[in-house]
Write a protein that binds this DNA or RNA. Structure first.
Lengths: 224, 224
DNA sequence: AAGTAAGGCTACTTGCCAGTAGGTACGTGG
DNA sequence: CCACGTACCTACTGGCAAGTAGCCTTACTT
């Protein structure tokens, strides 16, 4: 009965393409992180983005394309965040420490980005999984380089007792797992998280370098 | 033209229900592990199982039911494998070591089970994710108990420097990540994998217990 | 003021796939 | 050899969600 009958939620109208694309990507990351790739619907993404579905297709392409762009954007963000925090002229342990802090800071600030990258991306078989595992591999290699650098610095040659790559994989896994844990414990700061990991891992690694080795004790049959 | 016209792949006929259920579950684990829950189709599962689709529904229920049963069966298997390998009267480090070996042996032998549990289960929102994270939590708590036991044994009281739970989460993550790594390096034995982890983690942990702590050095601004 | 390009939408088509209806073979006990 | 139950199948339905055709609307430009 009033003169202004329709007031559909009053969403911003006629914005430039770049802005819309950002909004859509933001919405997509949010929805993907909540439901995963398959269960997320384009309709819901469009709704969250405050935009109709065809816009998504004209701007960002198919659902798969969209997901790919999400992955790439968030991966880049993460990588840049970590690189920004690390100073290459410091000793290996300090580099690792700063990298870890930046990583945990990022995860805390962009939870959804982390969830999409870590949890969802692997579940979409094919190209994306490859892309993400690739990035993960780069991280592992980076850590491996630090580890080796620390090792040779201390005069450690080839050692049959461990593989740098395997250890680094374990370390990265530990870091990721702790990140997931931290999602449910936001009161723990990034510095504390990074310290835990350093203490757990770096101390053990130092021992290794210096020739101290854990071995199964006592008379249990142990053929490695 | 021959007298025996049709020879459709000659699959076993009229088997008892229990056998069929096992076949179906085996097929389901295989297909789910390859494609993930959503992309896996009941048609393909039935094909792999050598059985028609309605059988799956009469025997195991809906797709979700089926997936649930896969998860539960494999989780039980894994848990039993680990428990079978561990002797409760050994010192904490040896318990951990044996647990790890059993774990890696299981992963090597039942790759698909591990993939379903680790990668796919989390992606199906809701009850299953909860179930799996629950199992994971139990593992973390188990490890935490070992860690605390070792700590108190050495006379370590409350320590602000670390949280047992967080550390255990990191350790479990490291173990999982190393398991994934090992999937692509089948030449590395379970004993070696377990040793790496023990060296990486337990040595570091021992240092911690004995009061040795890693701290960020040099004049970098470090407010934890 | 007319032309035009870019922003934006509603409403449809289409294909896939979970789930089912309804039936056929095979065995076993009477 | 007949009746009944259990193993098993082919062939369909129904719904959901990806992707699209076609049209309207605002804001410059000349």
């Amino acid at each position: 009965m009033s003169e202004e009958v329709q007031r559909p939620p009053e969403r911003a109208r006629r914005l430039p393409r770049a802005v819309r694309e950002r909004q859509i990507l933001d919405a997509a990351v949010q929805v993907f992180s909540r439901y995963g790739y398959h269960s997320a619907s384009m309709d819901e993404i469009s709704e969250v983005a405050g935009v109709s579905k065809p816009m998504i297709y004209t701007y960002l392409g198919s659902k798969e394309d969209l997901f790919g762009q999400c992955i790439r954007r968030e991966a880049t963000r993460l990588l840049e965040a970590v690189q920004a925090g690390v100073q290459p002229d410091l000793p290996p342990d300090m580099q690792l420490w700063h990298g870890l802090r930046s990583f945990y800071r990022f995860v805390a600030e962009y939870r959804e980005s982390w969830v999409v990258l870590h949890r969802q991306a692997l579940t979409v078989g094919g190209a994306f999984a490859a892309e993400v595992t690739d990035m993960r591999l780069r991280a592992i290699e980076l850590v491996a380089a630090l580890v080796v650098s620390a090792g040779t610095r201390k005069g450690l040659g080839e050692q049959a007792e461990f593989s740098g790559e395997g250890l680094s994989a374990a370390l990265v896994g530990a870091a990721e797992s702790l990140a997931d844990w931290a999602l449910e414990h936001p009161e723990v700061s990034d510095g504390v998280l990074a310290s835990w990991l350093m203490n757990l891992v770096w101390l053990g690694f130092n021992d290794l370098i210096e020739g101290q080795v854990w071995k199964p004790s006592e008379g249990t049959t142990t053929t490695l």
